[in-house]
Amino acid sequence: MKLTLRVWRQQNAEAPGAMATYEVDGISQDMSFLEMLDTLNEELILSGDEPVAFDHDCREGICGACSLVINGDAHGPERTTTCQLHMRSFDDGDTIDIEPWRASAFPVVKDLVVDRSSFDRIIQAGGYISAPTGTAPDAHATPVPKPDADSAFEHAECIGCGACVAACPNGSAMLFTSAKVNHLGVLPQGAPERETRVLDMVATMDDEGFGGCTLTGECATACPKGIPLPSITAMNKEWLRATRKVHR
């Protein structure tokens, strides 16, 4: 396959960026999108240019490190992470636009790499439990109803990649925050911090400069792990409940 890539290049956080055009040839349909970028970077290095910086780690769709807005879609045209996106989803001769996540809470570090530590601060605000849960066998000591366990697992699938923020026209982190809130909120182990968790995490989300939710549904469409849109509704309900219960 021969492709034309239009890639966002930006030297550092302060420097202005722009789209740069590159031609890559000899791309196999079995390559992942990141392997295709590796090929581009090898050519750039050989010709003495600076390689394109992009985030990646496990390359098996479970760590949440990779990002990229590909032709306007977070993680590209398939419902998966960029590392699990393969070049067979594109045609020979295609022009592909590659941009970083765009949000004021995700400032560009370099090229396609953005700083997602705002997500870490949302987690620090309440995305944990304080109860000692013991070792693995002790987990069975606390019975969890099957529907609650399923719901917790569904929300625990969130890998914190930030595709929801990138896809949202408002740069909102509601889907991410709701996945974390609902994951711990439905479990008995998460009950002691149930109210403070949702109040503190939503407050931190606001403080980090994420936008609000206008229920466009773009986040849930983009989410590689299929966190559903009603997750946001459930968090709204939790937030209102906590506001009624906690007086401060």
């Binding site: 306007g72 941009e99 765009r102 949000a103 004021s104 408002n170 609000g212 773009e218």
Partner: peptide
Amino acid sequence: RRDLRARPTAYVHRKARS
């Protein structure tokens, strides 16, 4: 105002959304 501030740089590749 909050929503517009949260996405200061628009995407080059625009898609009709929602």
